[in-house]
Design a protein around this nucleic acid. Structure first.
Length: 124
DNA sequence: GGGGTGACTTTAT
DNA sequence: CATAAAGCCACCC
């Protein structure tokens, strides 16, 4: 079975251009709600030139969380190239850019009943 | 297998 | 908002 680091890379690889996720969010998706620091460590360990979009992961406050100045700058540049806007204090608007992965398809046979669906059925 | 190590998060001030 | 402190946890000797 893939170790935690590899699973982190798999999830991060799914973040689309122009969206971001927090370390805690990634950890939560992997079933480790308190494993945020480990996610950060996993990304820290990525080899240079990796295809994993590590720059799309930031902290829960909406800021870049890399201590090394040069790498942090590269992360900001990459995000800005994807259209992500930083405010004057270096914050990203998470409500606007946070990645919300599609929910897994409901099990076969189960149908979700919504008001719109009911209305559509009634008018037919 | 115990302990050190963080690209974190939450809470309190 | 900006710290600070405490809790956290997979990995690597």
């Amino acid at each position: 079975m893939a170790n935690f680091f590899d699973r982190v890379y798999q999830v991060v690889a799914r973040i689309p251009r122009g969206r971001v996720a927090s370390y805690g969010q990634i950890a939560e998706m992997l079933g480790h709600p308190r494993g945020a620091r480990t996610v950060g460590w996993a990304l820290h360990e990525l080899p240079q030139g990796s295809r994993v979009p590590w720059h799309r992961v930031i902290n829960a406050a909406g800021r870049i969380s890399i201590p090394e100045v040069e790498e942090a700058h590269e992360q900001r540049i990459r995000l800005e190239q994807e259209g992500v806007v930083f405010d004057e204090r270096g914050y990203i608007d998470m409500r606007r850019y946070q990645w919300r992965p599609p929910l897994p398809r409901p099990a076969e046979g189960r149908r979700i009943s919504t008001p719109a669906r009911r209305a559509s059925r009634a008018s037919r």
